[in-house]
Simulated assay, not measured.
Amino acid sequence: MDTTPTTDPTDSAGTTDPTVRRFDSISLIFNPHSTGNAPDLAAKLADQLAQDLPYTPEIRMLPTAHAGHAVDLAREAAATPNALVVSVSGDGGYNEVVNGVMAAGNTDTVCAVLAAGNANDHQRTTARQPLARAIAEGQVRDMDLLHLTTGNGRDAEALYAHSYIGFGLTPVVAIDMEKGNKGALKEMVSVVRSFAKFRPHRITHTDGTRAKIDSLLFANIPQMAKHATLSEAEDRPADGKFEVILFPHTAKWRVLLKAFRATTTGLGDQPSVARYEFITLKPIPYQVDGEVRSAPANTTVRIESAPSALTVIG
């Protein structure tokens, strides 16, 4: 993705730094009915940028009107050259913005997220500095995405994820914990309840072998749900690979023990791949950055790394 700035910022030696950006437009996309105070956070960021930036971009406040609207708003914002699109939201809202920008095609758009909501795993694990300061300094970087395809041919559906894609129990439990913001004891009660209702899923791998799984998670970030450390990989999310965290079906107390390990010492090193494929045998629910969906039976599911697919700041 092209990261050439409109102007030519130079360092002390007088050489051009191609990673420094000054934006012609900055779009702030937010849910006006957010429980995470997104409208106020968006307004404060807009005011701070208008005051602190050494140049004068067009700053747009773009409230969403319905679920999925952020995809359309982000795609339209990305049609403007040299644009920054900021999602003032949690992980789900940022997922919509990322998919909207990717749907716009090969643009020079930069993305960012300002945490607002319960689930902010991506911002928490990837942010390097306060967003307003990062925008003022203009230092951008490339980030991998996860690319999910379900089905084949004309019936195939594709989505991008910035953080994780999960099938089975682990993401269900994690999101249940995240929504509550309840404290350790009540979160553990949520875990136990999820276990009580959960049934394992069967899938077929590309080599023809069948597997009975409790959880299958593909991660582009090392942590989720505030407490769970999924992997010790250091280069994510810009190494062209993602981690695969597989829980084969076993006694529920063993899975609970693994979940407890994830929230304390972490799960340790996990396999890192660029592609993973399997076939569902029955309908299976899954989550993309926390948003729940479902894949039908007898469907090919393919997860691929999209290396350096997105340019980000923050």
Rank of each mutant, 00 (worst) to 15 (best):
Q270T: 03
L267D: 03
D235G: 00
G290E: 06
R275V: 11
E277C: 11
Q287K: 12
L267N: 02
I284N: 01
Q287P: 03
P271E: 08
A274Q: 09
I245T: 03
A251Y: 11
D269V: 10
R236T: 07
G268R: 08
K252N: 13
A259L: 15
G266M: 06
G266I: 00
R236D: 07
A295C: 11
V292Y: 14
W253N: 09
S272Q: 08
L281V: 12
F278N: 02
L267T: 02
P296H: 03
V292P: 12
I284R: 02
T263C: 14
T265M: 10
R254G: 00
P283E: 12
Y276V: 00
H249M: 10
F247E: 04
K282F: 09
Q270Y: 06
P271H: 06
V288E: 04
T280K: 01
V244H: 05
A238H: 15
L257A: 14
V288A: 05
S294E: 14
L281D: 15
R254C: 05
W253Q: 13
A295E: 05
N298S: 13
I245F: 04
R293W: 10
D235W: 12
Y276G: 02
G266A: 07
T263H: 05
D289Y: 05
A297T: 04
Q270F: 03
T263L: 09
A238W: 14
P285N: 09
A238L: 08
V288G: 00
T264D: 07
A259V: 12
K282S: 15
R254V: 07
L267R: 01
E243Y: 04
T250Q: 15
D235H: 10
T263D: 07
P271M: 03
A262L: 07
A274M: 05
P283T: 06
P285L: 04
K282R: 13
L256A: 11
Y286A: 00
P248Y: 07
V255R: 03
K252Q: 15
V255P: 01
A262R: 00
L267Y: 02
R261E: 13
R275Y: 11
K252F: 08
G240S: 08
R261I: 05
E243R: 04
P237W: 02
E277F: 00
F278Q: 01
A238G: 00
G290I: 02
D269Y: 13
F260G: 13
Q270W: 03
A259N: 09
